[in-house]
């Protein structure tokens, strides 16, 4: 009765195994959406599933907001001085440079956006939490000075936990310094677009980040004066859902619009052109 007996055959893989590199796939840390990395990358690290905006380096914002090849970085040899000889600060600066690059917490320079000359600075959160010390303050001030001198609009992308406490009251005074140059910029009638990304709190939100002619914010970005943890501690209860998000700030009239990252370039360019009384990009010629 062995006619129905099947020869046991060893199972072998029919297909050749594809070598998939470990980093070809990416998973959204918020919604769990899985997609090929390239798709995340093409969407500027915005999740194709839920729209969560991952943090991207300051230099990516510069690429995004300037015409290809037009950007020249300025003030590249500027470094933080440990003026107060603050315990542990010198070491932290070395570590931060190794991790995030030599530009301190802001990449600054000039370039063009749809052909118009702009001065642009983007904060680098990976450098000590994007904290504002003398270097950030000085870069902002010089960019604004340049904008006044050349009547070229200013674009600043913020991502910061606030003032850098290792520079003590010197960092606090950067709020005053940057505000004074912004007052001059406003007086000169040179446009300034401020873009607030996750997070923008403390001394940066309470100075130049909130002083744009137009303040734009990325979806979901936490924006506020005090950080959520401090508020929670003060009031002794959990914060309402969505408190201090970009959407919350628009609702309360503190920023002009929430703009998804893929539209930042176009929105900024259109605004700057209108503020300067120029034709739409690509309209003429």
């Amino acid at each position: 009765m062995a006619w129905f007996r099947k020869d046991r055959r060893r199972r072998t893989a029919q297909r050749e195994k594809l070598e998939i590199p470990a980093d070809a796939w990416d998973k959204c840390e918020v919604c769990g959406h899985v997609d090929i990395s390239e798709k995340f990358e093409r969407a500027l690290q915005v999740c194709p599933g839920c729209g969560y905006h991952r943090r991207i380096p300051g230099r990516r914002y510069i690429e995004l907001l300037t015409d290809a090849g037009s950007f020249t970085e300025l003030f590249t040899d500027m470094r933080s001085a440990d003026a107060l000889q603050f315990e542990g600060y010198a070491d932290r600066l070395v570590i931060a440079e190794r991790k995030a690059g030599p530009q301190d917490a802001m990449v600054a320079g000039c370039g063009t956006l749809t052909g118009i000359e702009i001065n642009i600075g983007a904060m680098e959160f990976a450098f000590m939490g994007g904290s504002m010390g003398s270097v950030v303050g000085e870069k902002v001030a010089r960019l604004a000075d340049r904008s006044v001198q050349r009547s070229a609009p200013l674009v600043l992308v913020s991502a910061s936990g606030g003032a850098r406490m290792q520079e003590g009251v010197l960092s606090l005074m950067q709020m005053a310094k940057t505000s004074a140059v912004m007052a001059r910029l406003r007086e000169a009638g040179t446009p300034y677009v401020s873009i607030l990304t996750n997070p923008t709190t403390g001394g940066v939100s309470a100075s130049y980040a909130m002083q744009g002619d137009v303040n734009l914010a990325e979806p979901g970005a936490v924006i506020g004066f005090a950080g959520p943890r401090v508020i929670k501690q003060t009031i002794g209860q959990d914060l309402p859902k969505g408190f201090q998000t970009a959407e919350f700030l628009v609702e309360h009239g503190m920023v002009d619009a929430v703009v998804p990252r893929p539209q930042l370039r176009d929105t900024t360019a259109r605004l700057l052109r209108m503020m300067q009384g120029l034709e739409p990009a690509g309209a003429a010629t």
Binding site: S179, S207, A209, M210, A226
Partner: peptide, 19 residues
């Protein structure tokens, strides 16, 4: 640092005063 203060724009109020 409280709820109402944030809702009504503590950061904006200080930033504006500075400017």
């Amino acid at each position: 640092p409280g709820l109402g203060a944030e809702e009504r724009g503590q950061a904006e109020a200080i930033a504006r005063n500075l400017e």
